[in-house]
Amino acid sequence: MDAMWFSVAMTIVAASTPLLLAALGELVVEKAGVLNLGLEGMMLVGAVTGFAVTFATGAALVGIVAAMLAAVAASMIFAFLTLTLASNQVATGLALTIFGVGISSMIGEGFVGKTIPVLGPVFPEALAGHPFLRLLFGHSPLVYVSLVMTAVVAWFLTRSRAGLILRAVGENDASAHSIGYSVIGVRYAAVAFGGAMAGLAGCFYSMVQTPMWAEELTAGRGWIALALVVFSAWKPWRLLLGAYLFGTVMTLELQAKAAGVGIFAPEFLAALPYLATILVLALISSRRSVGAAAPACLGRPFKPAT
């Protein structure tokens, strides 16, 4: 119960943050009725852009903004195909991931083997002297962004007029259209937001977690974020819980192995975070909102009947 546990807690925060960032974006996208399976691809585009621009300019903030813009650009390809041309969202999303894997390794080819200074704590060192204070104030800015964004998304969806419109578009696109809302416009905005958040998640890996670029740096985390959205029943606070639960089990699994606890199959320990997250979130969502969780128009292309 000392410095070690605070250090473990720091690791948990770092493991959970990018999942939360990416999943928050996807949650808003899905609430608008769009299923974007290209999360992993957009994260990779964000990761490589954030790293490359920070490497070139030396300014982390410029890198982060560039990462978001690049991921938004990638998401706009998806939006154009699925919203304007009404293509199949599942197939297009998968294509976006394949595209992201390919283009990120192409852009990143010259950056393999390079490194940048880690994007460190946002608050001054003096505030983070004691391990407990460090747990509160010793994180990279993206950690605080992820927490603030959880509150913002929760407020937006349930308390704001714009959020109500977005949900209407996701629940019943025809009705929203008939009372004069631009279904396609709202969905474009949601997909762009999802892209920006995926970009942030991506550059968390390439600038905070491991300040480097290597092919497929995110190693499948985008798929986990996608699953978290579903298992959180499209509720932002539950998503926060799910992401931190996943991060905690993932970290404790490694701690247990390092401490020599759990001699049984390492493969089982490795699967534990997935099992625990599925179990807990499935239990929560089965007890309360039965079946009503998924946006009714999720994944359905919208063609105005005019």
């Binding site: 770092a14 190693a219 985390r221 192995k257 020599g260």
Partner: peptide
């Protein structure tokens, strides 16, 4: 102390494994 990450390549997990090992005295 050995930590199995069940992957040849997963930078984030490898970094977390290293931190866990450091926390455990390595």
């Amino acid at each position: 102390k050995v930590v199995w990450v069940s992957s040849w390549y997963d930078p984030a997990k490898e970094a977390d494994a290293a931190k866990a090992l450091f926390d455990q005295g390595a």
